[in-house]
Nucleic acid binder design. Structure first.
Length: 429
RNA sequence: GCCGCCGUAGCUCAGCGUGGUAGAGCAGCUGGCUGUUAACCAGUUGGUCGUCGGUUCAAGUCCGACCGGCGGCGCCA
């Protein structure tokens, strides 16, 4: 009698004696026979206990078992086409490890988004919720592999900071022993400092945005994959993003086959190169659809969504106006109003998943930019100072992990990509 | 910040127009059934109708304010 995980139980020959531990995902009683579906994080397997075959005491215990009770059972593997996946465990004995109260998440509860997220600490036990979290892990794992293979160094930047990478209005403020401090929106500035020591770096850590954005693609706390490399121009930067996304998608399709199946997601990894569309071309496209906007403004969601739905693989929107970008962006050599930056947009209407660009490496240029945008110089002192000590041209990008998960897993809302999502209306559980 | 929708049993909802003291399905519980897969059959428990205030003999229902959630916009990964 060996202790095995459920995934292993499917590999063993018929008749093998096994001991399994897990939770009762479902139970049904049919007279003298009781079926439970056991879950242990590695899979699901049906176990059947028949009156007369197992002892009366064990049968009574099996009767008392409720949904989500933690149990340990002993039995033997048997093949039966009536069982899901054609296999089950014939129970010989069962013990209750931790009895569960009446389980609040019922079939009808699935209809209620707010209920499911109020009970997220419990509802994550569902097949779909677990599948999404495993896909998210698959994405992170693949990203780590990708950068590791290319010699990038993982760094960690502080999440408590004093200066903003993006707009100041979207920072979570906190009291740092009497001083104002903020939760970081991005690790970019710290990565820029780090490249002069390490050459090429990446991070995998949370970012915070105090945007009251109630949309299917916004979280207030989310994880980012960010990379920065010295001597890398914007062209190479886009190629790197292409390679990263392609690598991740291929790995996930390979590693998370079952999870994608549980979600009913037929996902085909994209083939590079990804199409590139300039901002001006987007503006022209929008005007043709009667959705025109002013040059220099950000691209409206309707336009981005429409474009995104017309594509079958991710694509870049390049050549953003400086007015729609943060101060640190480098502009084109022949046009100081257009930045060397690009957004990476996922297809099928999922929208933006990454932003990247070439940063200003010249001291005077950055100084003038900070002054012209009337930004608080003292906050950017060290960032600017980097440019006095051998800062080469460099570029980088940031990918939203949950946004990428949303696209790969085919989710309707980004909150499903987070174990305990933080949105403007939710900080609990 | 703006626009729209919704808060009634553990869950999903009906009841509100025409005010008279709460109802269904599911879940739970009890019993039956030796192959369930969203099991089935019979019985049954369960509610200060989001909160506060107002009108009224009487408010789940009418009026007002507030709170909470959901969908969308703007903004962004």
């Amino acid at each position: 009698m060996s202790q095995v995980e459920i995934s292993e139980a499917f590999q063993l020959p018929e008749g093998s004696a096994v001991k399994l531990r897990g939770w009762v995902a479902s139970k049904s009683e049919v007279g003298g026979i009781i079926f439970i579906t056991l879950r242990d994080g590695t899979g699901y397997i049906q176990a059947a206990g028949k009156k007369g075959v197992i002892g009366e005491e064990d049968f009574q215990r099996l009767k008392r078992v409720t949904k989500e009770t933690a149990v340990e059972l002993e039995g033997s593997i048997r093949v039966d086409k009536r069982a899901p996946k054609g296999r089950e465990v014939a129970i010989k004995s069962l013990s209750i490890i931790a009895l569960a109260d009446k389980w609040p998440i019922t079939k009808s509860a699935v209809k209620s988004t707010s209920f499911l997220y109020d009970y997220r600490h419990l509802s994550i036990r569902g097949r779909k919720a677990s599948a999404v979290i495993k896909i998210r892990w698959g994405i992170m794992k693949a990203a780590i592999e990708f950068f590791s293979q290319r010699g990038y160094c993982l760094i960690s930047s502080p999440t408590i900071v004093q200066s903003a990478c993006e707009g100041g209005a979207t920072l979570f403020e906190l009291d740092y022993f009497g001083q104002k401090a903020y939760l970081s929106q991005s690790a970019q500035f710290y990565e820029e400092a780090a490249i002069c020591a390490l050459g090429k770096v990446f991070i995998l850590q949370p970012a915070f945005r105090a945007e009251k954005s109630k949309t299917p693609k916004h979280l207030t706390e989310f994880w980012m994959i960010e990379a920065e490399k010295a001597f890398m121009d914007q062209e190479e930067n886009m190629k790197l993003q292409e390679d990263l996304i392609t690598y991740i998608c291929n790995r996930v399709v390979e590693d998370c086959k079952e999870e994608l199946e549980v979600l009913g997601r037929r996902f085909k990894p994209p083939e590079p190169p990804f199409p590139r569309i300039t901002y001006d071309e987007v503006l022209k496209f929008a005007s043709e659809q009667n959705l025109g906007f002013k040059w220099g403004e950000d691209i409206p969601t309707v336009v981005e969504t429409l474009l995104s739905k017309s594509q079958t693989k991710p694509f870049f929107i390049t050549d953003y106006p400086l007015s729609a970008r943060s101060f640190y962006h480098m502009t084109k050599p022949d046009n100081e109003n257009i930045t060397l930056s690009a957004d990476l947009i996922a297809p099928e209407g999922h929208g933006e998943i990454a932003t990247g660009g070439q940063r200003i490496h010249d001291y005077q240029t950055l100084l003038k930019r900070i002054e012209s945008q009337e930004l608080p110089m003292e906050n950017f002192r060290w960032y600017l100072e980097l440019r006095r000590y051998g800062m080469p041209p460099h570029s980088g990008f940031g990918v939203g992990v949950e946004r990428l998960t949303k696209w790969v897993a085919g989710l309707k809302h980004i909150r499903a990509a987070s174990l305990f999502p933080r949105t403007p209306t939710r900080v609990n559980p």
